[in-house]
């Protein structure tokens, strides 16, 4: 049971990272990146590639693997973050602010292009990114868990906390929130609104890339692994309330817990349970559990 809860929180914290990314882009631009899953997968492979290149360049034991892994995580976040800009320019900006949600289709398209390109580089196979602190299983009473689970849990919570703090305490966070609430008023403060929007996509994509490196040692990395993770992150954002960053984080943890607790009973049913839960929650609370209702003026 404890094991399931730890496992659930671990996965959940990754979903929360992705959900947070959705929250950032949605509040500032009213759009979402439906290719987030491919950013997660490709992020993991950028991490793998970084480890490979550095090992080849520096020799196997020049620096500790922990450092290599850390560099890989940073590289993935950076690479995906930078890739967030062409995504914004090609798939989002032509459609932002217009009715019809064409950006759903264009971002899915961007994702397929990205995935195809990645497939031609890395191929179909799954690969293992070693965990930075090895694969030993720790035991606490009945429960056993892996070091990587703790790494993910600690790192993800640290990042979520840092984001939460940054949104509340820093100038850039204040600007993001100002743009999210009222673009015109933000512009009247002298804030460059399009730049804030592009930054939101950069941050959201970086979070996805980082998530990829975090989960790669737990699940084996393949270019298809990201889709389901991102879908759960998307679910987390929506049932938590897309407009509320803390709601998104809570949604992530909730989905992680539901998933791992269902797995206690039957591993096959865990995704069915998760997505049934999503449908149920939205049928009851169309704006999510902690979301705000957007009222249309007539």
């Amino acid at each position: 049971m404890l094991q399931a809860i730890i496992g659930g929180l671990t996965l959940g914290s990754v979903y929360a990272l992705i959900a947070l990314g959705f929250n950032l882009t949605y509040t500032t631009t009213r759009t979402l990146n439906f290719a987030q899953g491919d950013f997660v997968s490709v992020g993991a492979f950028v991490g793998l590639g970084t480890v490979g290149v550095l090992t080849a360049a520096l020799g196997a034991d020049a620096v500790g693997y922990v450092w290599l892994y850390a560099l890989a995580a940073v590289a993935a976040a950076l690479a995906m973050g930078v890739l967030g800009l062409p995504l914004y320019l090609a798939a989002i900006r032509p459609f932002a602010g217009k009715p019809g949600m064409s950006w759903v289709v264009s971002t899915i398209g961007f994702g397929i292009v990205l995935q195809s390109a990645a497939l031609s580089v890395w191929g179909l196979g799954a690969r293992m990114l070693p965990a930075p602190f090895g694969d030993e299983v720790f035991r606490v009473g009945e429960a056993g868990f892996r070091s990587q689970e703790l790494v993910v849990l600690v790192l993800a919570f640290a990042i979520l906390g840092a984001f939460d703090l940054a949104m509340r305490r820093t100038a850039i966070g204040r600007c993001m929130r100002a743009v999210a609430l009222n673009r015109d008023a933000a512009a009247l403060m002298g804030i460059d609104v399009p730049r804030v929007m592009a930054m939101a996509f950069l941050a959201s994509s970086a979070l996805a890339g980082l998530s990829g490196v975090l989960v790669a040692p737990i699940l084996s990395a393949s270019l298809f692994m990201g889709v389901i993770i991102a879908l759960k992150g998307f679910s987390a954002a929506i049932i938590g309330g897309l407009t509320n960053p803390r709601g998104c984080m809570a949604g992530g943890l909730l989905i992680g817990l539901v998933e791992s607790l269902t797995a206690l009973w039957s591993a096959q049913w865990r995704e069915i349970m998760v997505f049934l839960l999503v449908i149920l929650v939205l049928a009851m609370a169309p704006n999510g559990l902690f979301g705000r209702k957007l009222v249309e003026k007539v």
Binding site: A90, A91, S102, V105, S106, G109, V113
Partner: peptide
């Protein structure tokens, strides 16, 4: 992918 991205 390209069709989806640019068609609309």
């Amino acid at each position: 992918g390209a069709m989806l991205l640019f068609a609309l």
